[in-house]
Design a protein around this nucleic acid. Structure first.
Lengths: 227, 227
DNA sequence: ACAAAAGTGTTGTCTGTACACCCATGC
DNA sequence: GCATGGGTGTACAGACAACACTTTTGT
């Protein structure tokens, strides 16, 4: 039998970039650290991978601890492994990003963890290499959303075309043409118009839509060209 | 000070998917294991991340040990962290893929390591989750090559249009139209025609090309739409 | 009747794709 | 002179981008 005993063992952390969308801006969920090192500074939500825990399960656990949410869209971003990235000890971190509906977020848990939503347009300083992680996550989200219908995970289940467009505009930080956007999304045939209207934002009211689950799953696998 | 002592420590491996192109097929470099577990079976080249070694440096070291090459195009693929992926012990593995010019590969080192080039069209069985890694790497290579000029790393420094086309055909496992391909690659303006011709494969001879380094670096950063 | 947001078509330009013949050369 | 692979152009179709007015309804 080969023995692995001679090899180094490492602390393996998870850091979670949690994206949300408030109807206007793309936001991230951050924590004001209660403990040293770097008490008071902003960081991503994190945790360590347990002895017999899969890395993915650890990521889901970390997300659950902060948000109380499970069955959330989550994807591995990158493993960050520079020797001094954590200034306190050698820690290798695997970053995940998650997309949640910001309305699902529980105020109580938020306060317990000292967590805050921060717009990603102008990021504040974060500890360690967390800022790099967030930048990488934004870039990956853009790429992913261009080819897959995952952006919907950031919206409530019923939404207007305007909200959907605003989401894409927030992710790409660029304005889109309303008519071209409507035509494009219709041609993909991934949303269904409801009879209901949303009437808070205008007198005329705008129709609500939901996703076509089947088409959604198909396109999630196969990919598409969205933008 | 926060202490991390309570947390589990893990063996952290590197596995390397090494791509090469022989003018016809896209190939991967694999090792016939000399040691248990799974002696005699095929695996990727691997190694462990050292105490104070960055993950990236570990990947470069592993590649160097097998190929004698450094300064090679290399990219992190994914971290594989299922609890029982290595059947012998809990090992979390970070997979990297590398693109090398197959002609640079040293026969002697190859034999020393019991290494073989295998076409990726029909993969044989590999140990652990290495097959999944290779499939994921192929997919990532396709995505990357569609948007970045990295494929060139698989070719010799001087090459013909036919070779370049064959490379893209091998990566996508699909035939491409010669005229459309030529027009496309010319429009990107990334290669320069030399006065020299390559005359082994035809009587007329075909012109050799090299990359325009500056344009190459620009497009590597910015991205492009290649396919 | 007016303010405020929703909804809807057309046109020109560009990009992608399909397709076949002549050219240069060594034998 | 012929066999072999190299090199080149055109036409059609679909996708994308730019652009502004009408509709609905609450006040």
């Amino acid at each position: 039998m080969t023995s692995y005993q001679q090899y180094a063992r490492h602390l393996l952390a998870i850091d979670c970039i949690i994206f949300g969308f408030d109807g206007e801006d793309l936001k991230g969920l951050f924590i004001k650290r209660k403990l040293e090192p770097q008490k008071g500074n902003l960081s991503l939500m994190g945790g360590f991978v347990g002895e017999n825990e899969s890395v993915e399960a650890a990521a889901e656990r970390v997300l659950f601890e902060l948000t109380g949410l499970s069955n959330v869209y989550m994807e591995q971003l990158h493993c960050y492994g520079a020797p001094n990235r954590d200034t306190f000890s050698r820690v290798i971190s695997i970053a995940y990003f998650a997309l949640i509906n910001i309305a699902d977020y529980n105020e109580t848990i938020l306060k317990e963890h000292n967590a805050v939503w921060i717009t990603l347009k102008q990021l504040p300083e974060l500890i360690f290499d967390h800022r790099q992680m967030v930048e990488d996550a934004k870039e990956k989200l853009r790429q992913k959303v261009a080819n897959h219908p995952i952006g919907f995970a950031l919206l409530p289940s019923k939404f207007t075309l305007k909200q959907l467009q605003a989401l894409y505009e927030a992710i790409y930080e660029t304005p889109l043409d309303k008519r071209n956007f409507t035509r494009k999304i219709s041609s993909i045939d991934i949303i269904k118009k409801l009879a209901e209207k949303e009437k808070t934002s205008s007198k005329k009211g705008s129709f609500l839509y939901i996703f076509d689950e089947e088409k959604y799953k198909l396109l999630e696998k196969e990919g598409l060209k969205f933008i």
